Simulated scan of single mutants.
Amino acid sequence: MDPATTPPISLIDFATVHSGERPGDAFHRSVAFAQQAERLGFKRIWYAEHHNMKRIASSSPAVLIAHVAANTHRINLGAGGVMLPNHAPLTIAEQFGTLAELHPGRIDLGLGRAPGTDPRTLQALRRDARAAETFPQDVVELAGYLSGDSTIPGVTAVPGAGTNVPLYILGSSLFGAQLAAQLGLPYAFASHFAPAALEQAVATYRQTYQPSEQHPEPYVIAAVNVTAADSTDDAVEQDRQVKRKRARAMLARGRSITEEELDILLSTPQAQQVLDMLRYTAVGTGSEVRDYLADFRARAQADELMVALNAPSGAQSLRSMEILADATNLAPR
């Protein structure tokens, strides 16, 4: 990418728990990940709320953000996102208001409508399945708490009021695009795992955008996977390992299967559907990844890229980050 036209590049951290590890190992790695991202010049890191997933430890984004923020200095940190129907808006306003008071100007809040889990876990969260129906109203209520202009008389978020934590609507369909446009908020599309509606959703968002005081212009963040390595062959092999691991997790359904059994599963239509979730993936050396991201940005009409670094290990992920930063001319801090 040309330095003059390089968009802000941010990162997603899934707090991945590798085989034989505890979640604490993932959190330790998240700190190292954020510290390196800060040095290299990445704009922000987001953590997603997932529940009942053995390999993802980011079930409490606010707690994880607090830990990482205490061990970094400048980089923005946020939820990408909090699944708002799982929570009372006041609770989220207080959590992220606390973070904003502790780390002024560094906290983001992306909001999703999905549960971030399976139906049984959803019930264990005490979440009413109908809660998603009030997502638009809940976003407005939350925004009121954070601005200090509460929509509920007599109820103030303390901390929270007046922090104006930036809000982002997350989505993978037209619903999120339409809501973000209606509310005049930035829109982040989850094309790293749900690519199908990317172009249509972004076009809808930009065409119907209603300017707000905070955001007079639309702003699109598009997520994309990256596997960068020192050689094309190494990157291709890492990508192969990541995809096999993804397919095993989603198709084996908790069963222990051999590599041969996995090969059989990978030949099925169901496997192709799973792998298509990773359709937008840059694989290769720095220059190859850079060229892919330039094309992807144009396709997505993106103002900012949110990168999921797909690598088999923490060390490979850190190296991938270095290659990406160098190739895209990020400015070290």
Rank of each mutant, 00 (worst) to 15 (best):
L185H: 04
R120T: 10
L77R: 03
G81D: 03
A223D: 09
S30T: 11
L185G: 06
Q241N: 04
L11H: 02
Q178I: 02
V63Y: 01
Q272I: 02
I92C: 02
L167T: 09
I323R: 04
A157Q: 06
T134S: 15
T151V: 13
Q316V: 02
L122K: 02
S60C: 12
P269G: 02
E304T: 01
G81H: 01
R206K: 14
A157N: 01
R299V: 10
E260H: 12
F14D: 03
M277Y: 06
H18D: 14
D233A: 15
Q137I: 00
E259F: 01
G171W: 11
A190P: 00
P153N: 01
G176R: 09
D2F: 02
T121R: 02
E49T: 10
M53E: 12
G112S: 08
S231D: 05
T5C: 06
V283D: 01
S212G: 08
G171A: 09
A249C: 00
R39P: 02
P153A: 05
E260I: 11
G80T: 06
S320W: 02
L324P: 00
A252R: 03
D276L: 06
A201S: 15
L111C: 10
G284Y: 01
L198H: 10
P61Q: 00
M83Q: 13
N71A: 14
R126E: 12
A132I: 03
Q178F: 00
L305D: 04
T281Y: 00
G80R: 07
L309T: 05
R255V: 04
F193H: 05
L293I: 03
T227Q: 06
R127F: 06
S320N: 04
L142Q: 04
D13N: 13
E213A: 15
S59Y: 11
D295N: 11
A88N: 13
V165P: 05
A294S: 11
Q241R: 14
T285G: 05
A300W: 03
A294V: 15
E213S: 14
M53I: 15
L324T: 08
R74G: 07
Q137H: 12
A129D: 07
S19W: 02
H192S: 05
P3H: 08
F175P: 09
E217R: 14
Q272D: 12
V140D: 08
T163W: 05
